[in-house]
Amino acid sequence: MTPLHDRLLDAHARDDRAGLITLYAEAADTANDVNAACFFLTHAYVFALEKGDPVTDVLYQRLKAEGRV
């Protein structure tokens, strides 16, 4: 496993929503292809919506730019 994967698992175990938003966005930024990036962005977006995080709009725009919304 990668350090990012380990941090994601840890954040899930702790139910750290803010951490999950950041980590999934990081995973999207480092993904090797657009489908993987959008998969991770979608997760970040859902957690941001649940939390009411201001980054929701940024994540939405990133997904929209890829034609995913």
Rank of each mutant, 00 (worst) to 15 (best):
M1I: 12
T2D: 04
T2C: 14
T2W: 13
P3V: 07
H5L: 11
H5R: 13
R7Y: 03
L8H: 10
L8C: 12
L8W: 06
L9K: 15
L9I: 13
D10L: 12
A11C: 13
A11L: 11
A11T: 11
A13T: 13
D15A: 10
D16H: 02
D16E: 04
A18Q: 07
G19F: 01
G19C: 01
I21K: 01
I21F: 00
T22A: 14
Y24P: 01
A25Q: 09
A25S: 05
A25R: 15
E26W: 05
A27H: 02
A27R: 06
A27T: 08
A27G: 11
D29W: 06
T30G: 11
T30N: 13
A31L: 03
N32C: 08
D33K: 05
N35A: 11
N35K: 05
A37H: 02
A37L: 03
F40P: 01
F40Y: 15
L41M: 12
L41H: 10
T42G: 15
T42I: 09
H43P: 02
H43Q: 09
A44E: 00
A44G: 05
A44P: 03
Y45H: 15
V46E: 09
A48M: 07
L49S: 14
E50G: 10
E50Q: 13
K51S: 06
G52N: 06
D53T: 03
P54W: 01
V55N: 06
V55C: 14
D57I: 12
V58L: 14
V58N: 11
V58A: 12
Y60T: 06
Y60F: 11
Q61T: 10
R62H: 04
L63F: 05
K64E: 15
K64Y: 04
A65I: 10
A65V: 10
E66L: 09
E66K: 13
G67L: 03
G67F: 04
R68L: 14
R68D: 03
V69C: 08
